[in-house]
Design a protein around this nucleic acid. Structure first.
Lengths: 233, 233
DNA sequence: TTGACAACATACCGAGTAGTATGTTCCCCT
DNA sequence: AGGGGAACATACTACTCGGTATGTTGTCAA
């Protein structure tokens, strides 16, 4: 089971020192998967990126597929952690705005992991070898669906509160996330930037996504103020 | 060169009969690439899908990468052909609406090819082996950029005509297309549908995308009428 | 009729790679 | 103090797959 993998990773050795390497593996793997994709990435590639060997990787992960799943899971954890501070927000519009901005930001900050997430959904539509892996993959897809559901409910709350008319909430949610996610495919982090560029992109995308729902965002608007508030955090 | 490939494909044999197989290869290849991705697809897979052998595929395409490029090129041709009837439209809003709808429709109708296009842009961000192939890939990316530019200019015209205020035209274009393209990742054609479902999805997405630009789409609206006109084509 | 060539099929090679089996080292626990 | 296991490294195997070299067949042009 993949849950066992996580436990192995988090367990500590006989000494008090953490088994250095396990989290780094996910980082390196995410980087390699992002660069060349799952199929074109060899375990040796990942090991080389770590300055280690193949044995080390297989000591922590049963198979290449399991390693990929671990990276996927970590990516979802990053996303969930990013939006979790705003789940308790009572105002529907504020909640969706905060969540959307946080999502857009983590997308640009953790690009390798986000690319793996994209590959994961693509992998879901095909066949992933063994039955046990297929089961794990389904579990991961469920996590993703749960994440999307959070947005779906936040959007639904806004639709009700603001009396908007969108054809289908489900389709609107997909479009909403599609706008925010689109940066994965073209954004490359600029080394000299201190996050301003990212916040600028995130707010622009968020404006588009909120307008898509039928909201009016104009200068001085309450929504506009909300967004501007995020830009200068 | 890949241009040579196309010529080979279009040339006719000594007999008058067309060299049956060449267009089918692209269809089969697109299907395989969609199912398992570029790296995980073997030439034998493509050949098997055709009921042919590896030699047949290599008779028409120099390498696996060239085959992929040919599929990519065909996909772009399909997209370009889909929107070309509306390029002469004088009304900016009508033009963008028609183009967007046509794009959303061809996306669902030719899903395998569209998936290949998505993989192509991903491949662009990594390394594609040889220098000659890299050159071809750049050419294909240029074609894609040209396609995006058509939308960019159409959107810009609407922004001017309707006096909209979007932060960046370029970013707005990316968001606009992201909404329409998103169906590639989750839409699966229903066998019993006669296109109604697709038109419904396309119009919903188009509504979202147009609203994202700041346009107002409400019942009885001129824009709403335009969109409804497409739904019942 | 006979080369010649297109349009394939068949057989084969070599490189790369997932996974395994087996060391080796170091630290903890008893 | 010594057994045992965690945390790796090394060596090896079995197999896939891109690409090529070569065979086979049908058709057209002269």
């Amino acid at each position: 089971m993949s849950a066992a993998d996580t436990q192995v990773m988090e367990k500590v050795g006989h000494n008090g020192a953490a088994p250095r390497g396990a989290p780094e593996i996910l980082q390196a793997a995410a980087h390699c998967f992002k660069e060349n994709g799952f199929a074109a990435t060899s375990i040796d590639d990942v090991a080389r990126a770590l300055g280690a060997t193949k044995g080390m990787v297989y000591h922590h992960h049963r198979s290449k597929t399991d390693l990929f799943f671990a990276v996927y899971r970590r990516g979802m954890e990053l996303n969930t952690a990013a939006i979790s501070p705003y789940l308790g927000e009572t105002n529907a519009l504020t909640k969706l705005t905060r969540m959307g901005f946080a999502h857009a930001m983590v997308l640009m900050e953790e690009q390798p992991f986000q690319r793996v997430l994209a590959q994961g959904v693509a992998m879901h539509q095909t066949g992933s070898t063994t039955a046990a892996q297929r089961e794990t993959l389904l579990e991961l897809i469920e996590i993703r669906k749960g994440y999307e559901r959070i947005f779906r409910e936040a959007i639904e709350a806004v639709v009700i509160a603001e009396k908007l008319s969108v054809g289908s909430i489900s389709l609107a949610t997909k479009s909403f996330l599609a706008v925010l996610n689109s940066a994965v495919f073209w954004y490359s982090p600029q080394p000299d930037e201190s996050g301003e560029e990212q916040r600028s992109i995130a707010t622009d995308q968020l404006t588009y996504a909120l307008r898509g729902l039928g909201l009016t965002v104009s200068a001085g608007n309450p929504i506009h103020k909300l967004i501007e508030q995020e830009r200068t955090s």
